[in-house]
């Protein structure tokens, strides 16, 4: 138990550092922004209570906001992500539920399961984030395009990371 908590806390800082120090400095045209840091929320254990998920989302979002000087933007999107995660998890649940002592990762549930899970949550997060950024529906379709392209990029980064840094 203590080990799981400690690992998650360390992961919290690692994703923030990767996001702020590396990915925020990689410029891939105006349409592509990978927001890798949401991996932290995706990898939290199945049994995490909902309120704790929300608080974790809030802390994560506000930390990113403090670095990018966009106070409130990532916070709103990440709290929303934490809010919908339980529903998405129950949507993709195996017939007899998630096994005890397992975590939402490729290692336990396979690539296709993880890819679908990550893609849906990433899309929801990016949708909220990008529309808060433009803040009106005037450029609805160009924003939607940015959402879709960035979702693909973020999801691939997250899946790749499962093979390299956060294996277990």
């Amino acid at each position: 138990m203590i080990r799981i908590v400690a690992r998650n806390i360390i992961r919290f800082f690692v994703v923030i550092l990767i996001q702020v120090l590396v990915l925020d400095n990689v410029l891939l045209g105006g349409y592509l922004n990978p927001y890798f840091y949401i991996l932290f929320i995706l990898l939290l254990p199945f049994e995490t209570p909902r309120w704790l998920l929300l608080v974790a989302g809030f802390l994560l979002g506000i930390s990113i906001d403090l670095f990018t000087n966009t106070l409130g933007m990532h916070t709103a999107a990440t709290v929303f992500l934490a809010f919908v995660r339980p529903w998405v998890l129950s949507l993709f649940a195996p017939r007899d539920g998630y096994e005890p002592d397992s975590f939402p990762r490729i290692h336990y549930y396979g690539l296709s399961w993880f890819a679908a899970y990550a893609a849906i949550l990433t899309f929801l997060h990016h949708f909220v984030l990008f529309y808060i950024e433009v803040f009106h529906f005037q450029y609805f379709f160009s924003t939607l395009l940015r959402v879709l392209l960035s979702t693909i990029l973020t999801t691939s980064t997250i899946i790749l990371s499962q093979y390299f840094i956060f294996r277990k």
């Binding site: 309120w51 998920l53 608080v55 809030f58 106070l71 916070t75 929303f80």
Partner: peptide, 27 residues
């Protein structure tokens, strides 16, 4: 209770957004 927590945290986020980002504030 998690819905209350959600509404509370989102409200905080929107307030922060409005107070610290001029563009969103004006809208």
């Amino acid at each position: 209770n998690y819905i209350l927590v959600f509404i509370f945290l989102e409200t905080v986020a929107i307030i922060l957004l409005s107070n610290h980002n001029l563009y969103q504030h004006s809208i």
